[in-house]
């Protein structure tokens, strides 16, 4: 099975967000960058699919700065075979431009499966997988928490409000991974050693501006000071009134 996994380098989820002086971006000083957790599910799924098929290749694609080589190495240490860094210092604000660059890199090859995480934990865009599928004219299933593949046919489950949707689709296809799809493996010492020697190709890319521009990044508004409605059961009447009339949530 020939599988591509597209990954992103993102600030660790524990990052304390500090805005840089340009007022538009994250101050990266002291920030720890990791492989996007949803992409870890995608890498793990790719490895399991390849292992099950008994042969094939898992190639990792990443759009990002030179330092994203480390992110790719993480996936290689897990067991992926090779990496491609689409190197640029600036991730486009318009997800469509990102998708075009990734689709162009994937296009020359034929893949049985192209995997993404369902979203990146920095920009919450959850759409690159779908856009790439569209650009490559492939069927696409998003936010998958269970996946079965038999020959050229896939069955996937995804959570929707109040239920689980079961989908059937033909391969090749684009699938985006949600939490629950699998438990990513712990890196192995031998994997880490082997990763140092696996091929990692660097291709500089020039993203276009596209139709979106980030104009500001700001801390969220502080919650306004709450109030103590009262003490004991006697305060419940007033609480319910406030929830109905002031907060309008009942």
């Amino acid at each position: 099975m020939k599988i591509a996994v597209c990954v992103k380098r993102v600030p660790d989820s524990e990052t304390r967000v500090k805005i840089s002086p340009d007022g538009k971006s994250l101050d990266e000083a002291g920030v720890k960058f990791v492989l996007n957790p949803y992409d870890e599910f995608a890498v793990e799924e790719a490895l399991r699919r390849k292992e099950k098929a008994g042969s094939g290749e898992v190639a990792v694609f990443c759009l990002g700065p030179a330092a994203a080589q480390e992110t790719i190495r993480t996936a290689l240490a897990m067991g992926a075979d090779r990496g491609v860094l689409l190197q640029t210092d600036k991730i486009p604000a318009d997800p469509y431009e990102t998708a075009k660059l990734i689709a162009a890199a994937l296009k020359p090859d034929t893949w049985d499966l192209i995997l993404f995480g369902r979203m990146a934990i920095d920009d919450y865009n959850h759409q690159i997988g779908s856009l790439v599928a569209q650009l490559l004219d492939l069927p696409c299933v998003t936010a998958v928490s269970h996946l079965d593949i038999q020959g050229a046919k896939g069955v996937a489950e995804r959570e929707i409000e109040g239920g689980i949707e079961v989908l059937e689709f033909p391969l090749p296809a684009v699938v985006t991974a949600d939490k629950g799809l699998n438990e990513p493996r712990y890196p192995a010492l031998k994997g880490i050693m082997a990763a140092k020697k696996k091929p990692l190709e660097i291709k500089p890319v020039q993203p276009a501006a596209g139709g979106m521009e980030i104009v500001a990044l700001a801390p969220p508004a502080e919650r306004k000071e709450g109030k103590i409605v009262g003490e004991g059961a006697a305060a419940v009447g007033e609480l319910v009134r406030l929830l109905r009339e002031e907060a309008k949530v009942l």
């Binding site: 600030p11 967000v17 604000a93 318009d94 920009d123 919450y124 139709g211 979106m212 521009e213």
Partner: peptide
């Protein structure tokens, strides 16, 4: 102009959308 929470809600991003 759209406002969107990013970084797990730890910041708000304002984007200017000119796409048609």
């Amino acid at each position: 102009i759209g406002t969107r929470p990013v970084y797990a809600g730890k910041a708000l991003q304002k984007v200017r959308v000119t796409a048609r």
